[in-house]
């Protein structure tokens, strides 16, 4: 196994597996966030379960953090290796003639997503870590809020139009990243499914519906708060 990941293909496979894992997580995250639009009670219940369940908090969350960090680090490592493999830069290089813009700019879209994640962590994850692990409050309640606090906190975050704008721009880049990443991940693990019309269509739908849904949720809370 260790020998596999010492090869260029092994590293690509690892990158693709982390991508597939993150895409599954994204779908789950989107599903839960969608509940905030449909049913605040259901959103609160599921958020409290996810935020307090030991399996989620102490097993799945560390795996997720590892997956995110691994995906970004491996992305940078592979990019550095690729730049080293290049010779002198072409005077004229017509990349648009043979490859989609999104496939040629995965690092750029990835960097925007990394910036978004920093903002997202400051907005949601760090406060949660503070409340649960530093203050030791696992009740899921807050003063002045009836029932669980998660729904009210979510809506409060999207009052600021600049935050909504920043989230929306980041989700556009997420769509671009997924647009290439979805099928590319399958190709990297050795599957030709990525070349099949069915999976390309699924990838296209996934890459646009999920980010558009996230934008819709942010806009919904901004305009209905």
């Amino acid at each position: 196994m260790a020998q596999l990941f010492q090869t260029s293909i092994g590293r690509k496979v690892a990158m693709a597996l982390s991508a597939i894992f993150l895409m599954v997580f994204l779908l789950q995250h989107f599903t839960i966030n969608s509940l905030s639009v449909i049913s605040p009670e259901a959103f609160n219940e599921v958020s409290h379960f996810m935020g307090t369940n030991p399996l989620v908090q102490f097993v799945l969350q560390p795996v997720l953090i590892f997956g995110v960090v691994f995906h970004f680090l491996m992305g940078f490592i592979l990019d550095i290796q690729n730049r080293r493999a290049n010779g002198q830069t072409y005077i004229k290089y017509n990349g648009a003639a043979n490859a989609k813009w999104v496939s040629r700019h995965m690092l750029l879209s990835g960097l925007v997503i990394l910036g978004f994640m920093a903002l997202h962590f400051v907005d949601f994850w760090f406060p949660e870590v503070n409340i649960k692990f530093i203050q030791g409050d696992w009740s899921g309640t807050a003063e002045g809020v009836e029932g669980f606090r998660y729904y009210e906190e979510l809506r409060h975050k999207f009052v600021n139009p600049y935050r909504v704008g920043a989230y929306s721009v980041a989700f556009v880049f997420l769509a671009l990243h997924l647009n290439h990443g979805f099928t590319s991940a399958f190709q990297s693990v050795g599957s030709n499914w990525g070349r099949k019309k069915v999976l390309q269509t699924v990838g296209l739908i996934y890459s646009y519906v999920i980010p558009a849904g996230f934008i819709g949720i942010a806009l919904f809370h901004h305009f209905t708060h």
């Binding site: 290796q81 690729n82 290049n86 990349g95 590319s184 990297s188």
Partner: peptide, 8 residues
């Protein structure tokens, strides 16, 4: 370098 499946 590594393949990033651009298809170029």
């Amino acid at each position: 370098g590594n393949c990033t499946n651009t298809g170029a």
